[in-house]
Amino acid sequence: MTPSFGAQLRAVMRRDLDRERRSGEVLWITIPFGAIALILVQLSVGADVPVLRDLGPGLYWAVVLLFGVLISVRRTTVETQAQRDLVALLGIDPAAAFAGRALASSLLLLGFQLIVGAVAVLFYDIRFSASGWLAMALVLPLAAYGLAVLGTLAGSIATRAAMGPALIPLIVAPLAVPLLLAATESVEGLRNATGILPWVLLMITVDLVLSITGVLTARPLMETQ
């Protein structure tokens, strides 16, 4: 009996999270690297607290975008052809494989955002009201999910391409701008109490469009691998 779509999705997601648990690549390498990047930028900007407070949120999102690409494409770039063939021969629905991988990356990215976010709050003295922190609980997962889906999609497109690992950030970074823009404007909206609804809607729209594109193109992309 063929497992349901949901069961396949959960299996792929569990596989990716197990791999991360064993390797600790995100926890022990990418997250410290992101935190160091934030600290280094602070060194280059100077010690002016008001300036750092203004720059902090933007720098945080830039770090999330650049390092998020590393997280969302990490498995695609190291996966061997034999592993891809095995997944295909097992009869796993390509859309379930895509969604499972994207969701696993979303969770890892969310962990990255939370830990590096704590570093940003401490080092850049970022302040929100209580409702602002609550709103961030909505903004962070939406941005993490969008980046993860985009990275997974770009990874699928560039699989087996010469220069693939170098090429993926070039594809992802410009296309992630609507997410980056919505995330930074949301934070600005929270700090200035000007409302964040349009930016949240933009993130939801981008997430939906990317999810539909990823699911619809999963099979043709797998066929050309």
Binding site: I157, A161, L167, L170, L221, T224, Q225
Partner: peptide
């Protein structure tokens, strides 16, 4: 530029056409 880079990286014409089509 990413679109053109992707095309240069894939030698099989059919795979190249399909993947770059999405982008």
């Amino acid at each position: 530029l990413g679109y053109l880079g992707l095309r240069r990286g894939i030698s099989d014409p059919v795979a190249r056409a399909r993947r770059s089509a999405i982008l």
